[in-house]
Amino acid sequence: MVMQWEAFLDQVMERGGYPSRQEAERAARVVLALLGAHVVGTERAELAARLPETCALVLLNPLQAAEPLTPERFVRATAAWIEGATDETAKWDVSAVLSVVADVADEELMHRVLLQLPPGYAALFGRPQAL
C-alpha cells in the first residue's frame, strides 16, 4: 500500500522538527526533485511507485543535474533551493526527507538506489554505510 501524502509529510515534519506542514512540504519537494536527478531507470520508477503520488511526480520530474553530486554537494544544492537555509539546516532537511523515503523502500531497493549514488549517501538516508 502506498503511503498517503499527508502521512508522508507528517513523518517528515516529525523527523525534521518542522513547526508547520508547509515547511516539511518545501523540504520534501526540493529533496525529492534533487534525488530524482540522481536516481534513474527502474530504481527511480520503483521508488516513485512506493511514494505518495505528489512525491512520485516530483521524483519523476527532477531538477536537472549536470553531474552526480557528492552528499556534501547535494546538501549544498538543497540549501541553495530553500530560502534562508544553511548547509546545516539543509542537512537536517535532507535527512528528514530521505529517512522517510528509506522507510518506504525495502532494503533491496535501497541497496540498488545507493549503488547509483556517490559514496556517503547511506547516512543521509539514515542507514549504515555498508549496505
Rank of each mutant, 00 (worst) to 15 (best):
Q116K: 11
A80M: 13
A130F: 10
A33E: 14
Y18K: 08
W81F: 13
L117A: 06
R44T: 03
E107T: 14
G84V: 00
G17L: 01
C55M: 11
V100E: 00
R73N: 13
L60K: 13
V94W: 10
A48T: 09
Q11C: 02
L131C: 05
A37N: 07
P71W: 00
E46W: 01
E14A: 14
W81R: 15
E67V: 11
R21T: 13
R44E: 04
V39Y: 01
E72H: 06
F125L: 02
A130Q: 12
P128A: 07
V113P: 03
V58I: 15
R15W: 03
A80Y: 12
P19L: 06
R112H: 03
A65G: 12
A45K: 11
V100Y: 11
F125I: 10
A28L: 08
A37W: 06
A45I: 06
A102M: 03
G126Q: 04
S20Q: 12
L117Y: 07
V39C: 05
E88Y: 05
V104T: 15
N61Q: 14
L124V: 12
W92S: 13
A122S: 14
A28F: 09
V2N: 06
L34H: 05
A85M: 07
A123H: 00
E23L: 15
V31G: 10
K91F: 01
A130C: 03
A37R: 05
L117E: 04
P71A: 06
L60T: 15
L35H: 03
A90I: 11
G120P: 05
L57A: 15
L98C: 02
V100I: 13
P71Y: 01
G84C: 07
P118N: 02
F8A: 06
E23S: 12
I82D: 03
